[in-house]
Nucleic acid binder design. Structure first.
Lengths: 214, 214
DNA sequence: CATGCTATTCAACGTTTGTTGAATACACAA
DNA sequence: TTGTGTATTCAACAAACGTTGAATAGCATG
């Protein structure tokens, strides 16, 4: 990160700090200090503070979307003519994030924590999340609708809401589960988190949206 | 709220604003203005800003805990000798919150949105949440362990993590599901939210923690 | 009425905030 | 070398921040 351009260092540092403390909990001076850069440079490159926040948020979204889309496409290929069932769809939605977190690139961990913050904030929540991710989410809902032909649409959306909540809490890595389980589970054990989340969520969809065709 | 004591009006207003914008997104002057009170009064009653935040957070926690504990006790009575199954345990954990949100007391809605904010914040998350709720959560984990005798403890905690995430996203009422579903689902339709969450979560627990004895 | 205690306001403090305009450094083309 | 545009720093702004000490009001009890 030392050799990256100053513009990128601002983005990287802002990503870390916004993920930890939220938009209002971070000052431009803290970001500038962390990036070893003058305060005014952030304004020069990104404009207002809110524009910097948006830039951080939008930077990695396309990569997530394409990774998920590709995983869904591969699952469809693998399923062949008999069509997709629930579990591979959920798997395609979630595993790319585990992979992102396991790259060792702390940037991804921070970015996903930032998403957790935004997704659960009534103030920031709806607009940015929808703008960045809803188009692709619809593709997954379509796949789930095909796999669960007896489901009502409202059931599918409510189930997606449960999925989204479980996922973003994992992003946040608050360490609460570490404390609650007395060290038995660790918030940063991504493998364990997703290995438990995928069957959990898939079973929930099947239960609520009808077990037929599965 | 007009006739409440000024001290209470500060708490009520702080609850609203903290839930919307988080700790750093709200100023003491905004709180004072909303409560129709001088700025210095908040410091007089509560000390530092952070102490006010804690006071807001801790105010309603005991009421949630006792409502949940009572619901669990009633479920145990109803189950009799054959012991509790998963679904009534989840129901006892979740329904009291639906009831709180349906009282029409906006204070409860705001408070739960505040919990959503804290639970997903790596900065605030662990300490306050654990302090307020973990003791009671352990009682529910115990009940689930009895209902799922083949479960490993780590499985139970990971499943609780999924439950916690789904629940707190519902608390946040970000309106994203309204947009995503094109109005088919509404974030403030608590009945629908819990009616979908309870079977979803119960099925997840049974799937991950073994279907035996259920 | 006087006394004492709590609640509330007033006024001000020293910092810190986001943002900006001018000044400087840098890179590269002519 | 000179010129030009971009990148970066410097210095400063007005506004807003949390917090505090002293002053005032309200209200019980004596």
């Amino acid at each position: 990160m030392k050799s990256a351009s100053k513009r990128d260092r601002i983005l990287d540092t802002a990503e870390i700090l916004f993920a930890e403390r939220g938009f209002d909990g971070v000052t431009l001076r803290q970001i500038a200090e962390g990036a070893n850069v003058d305060v005014a440079l952030a304004s020069y490159h990104f404009g207002k503070k809110l524009d910097l926040f948006r830039a951080v948020f939008m930077r990695r979204a396309p990569e997530i979307n394409s990774a998920r889309r590709e995983a869904l496409e591969q699952a469809k290929q693998a399923a062949g003519e008999q069509g997709l069932t629930v579990e591979p769809i959920i798997e395609a939605f979630l595993r790319p994030l585990e992979l992102a977190q396991e790259t060792g690139d702390k940037g991804w961990e921070n970015y996903l924590a930032l998403i957790a913050y935004i997704n659960n904030s009534p103030y920031w929540g709806q607009q940015m999340m929808s703008e960045a991710f809803d188009e692709l989410v619809e593709e997954f809902i379509d796949a789930l609708r095909a796999a669960l032909p007896n489901a009502q649409d409202s059931d599918l959306y409510w189930c997606y809401n449960n999925l989204s909540g479980a996922l973003t809490l994992t992003f946040a890595r608050t360490g609460r589960i570490d404390h609650l389980s007395k060290g038995l589970c660790r918030s940063d054990d991504f493998r364990a988190a997703y290995d438990h989340m995928i069957p959990f969520v898939a079973a929930g969809f099947r239960e609520v949206c009808g077990k037929h065709n599965d």
